[in-house]
Design a binder for these strands. Structure first.
Length: 254
DNA sequence: GCGACAG
DNA sequence: ATCTTGTCGC
């Protein structure tokens, strides 16, 4: 699979201060400009995607008592090319801001089973929208040195430029760094709220919170996610990974 | 002390 | 994230 950068591999036995310190280093090592070899416009969900279309991986997790089920689903256009999974013991509880230290190693274990090299990885969680701009998508993007984006269903920190309530599909607004983002200039744009979907006469759908993981800019992150959203709120690689994680989970518990 | 907090 | 059936509505 992808080579990893050992100095940034999350270590759940570290102290909280060490974890936070590593996150500053991860943010420094991350690139938030477009740096990928494929054409963003070649990313999509077409069934007829050509053989040279970008490989997009979706990553998701499900949980058992003391272990995590991590899965990676690789798609080319709308087709699943490969699926991989791992079941790994959890070492630490969920702590807001330290998610990559809880879920990072389980996810890396799943990546070890992947045979192809994804061109882009979509994570279920934040990238730059994080207290130290080193959310799950950024941290693992840097460890794997792969272009990545973070897609979160709720906002960890930062402030939307405009109210996000009840917006139509396709709408987006900046997420601006606030005082909680320790290593960002004020007013810096660290991500977008993106309304991927809205259904008529149905309960209001909340927007997605999209942010760069690694090697992708804020506008491109949202553009890529938009290209990956089909008829549902979440990008298709994420939905596919979510289903697969549930399958693996049920098969594991008997 | 109070509030806020991805999955 | 997870515990969980039916049920309302397009």
């Amino acid at each position: 699979m992808l080579p990893t950068r050992p100095e940034f591999v999350p270590d759940a036995s570290q102290s909280r201060a060490e974890m936070e310190s590593m996150q500053f280093d991860v943010a420094d090592a991350a690139t938030w400009e477009d740096d990928f070899p494929f054409d963003a416009e070649a990313v999509g969900l077409a069934d007829w995607a050509p053989d040279d279309a970008p490989l997009v991986a979706g990553v998701d997790q499900a949980f058992l008592d003391e272990s995590a089920v991590s899965v990676v689903v690789v798609m080319r256009g709308g087709r699943v090319i490969e699926r991989a999974s791992a079941v790994v013991d959890l070492e630490i509880p969920y702590v807001p801001g330290l998610l990559s230290f809880r879920e990072g190693n389980p996810i890396l274990a799943a990546f070890e089973e992947v045979e192809v090299t994804p061109d882009l990885v979509v994570f279920d969680g934040s990238g730059r929208i994080h207290f130290r701009q080193a959310g799950l998508a950024t941290h693992l993007g840097v460890v794997l040195d792969v272009p990545s984006v973070g897609v979160a269903k709720s906002l960890l920190c930062g402030t939307p430029r405009e109210s996000v309530d009840g917006r139509p599909a396709g709408w987006q607004t900046d997420i601006i760094a606030d005082g909680r983002v320790e290593n960002a200039a004020s007013e810096e744009v660290i991500g977008h709220a993106y309304q991927s979907r809205q259904y008529a006469n149905e309960p209001i759908v909340n927007p997605l919170y999209v942010s760069p993981g690694h090697r992708v800019s804020v506008p491109t992150a949202t553009d890529l996610v938009a290209r990956l959203c089909g008829d549902y709120k979440l990008p298709e690689p994420t939905r596919t990974a979510d289903k697969y994680a549930d399958e693996v989970k049920s098969s594991v518990r008997g």
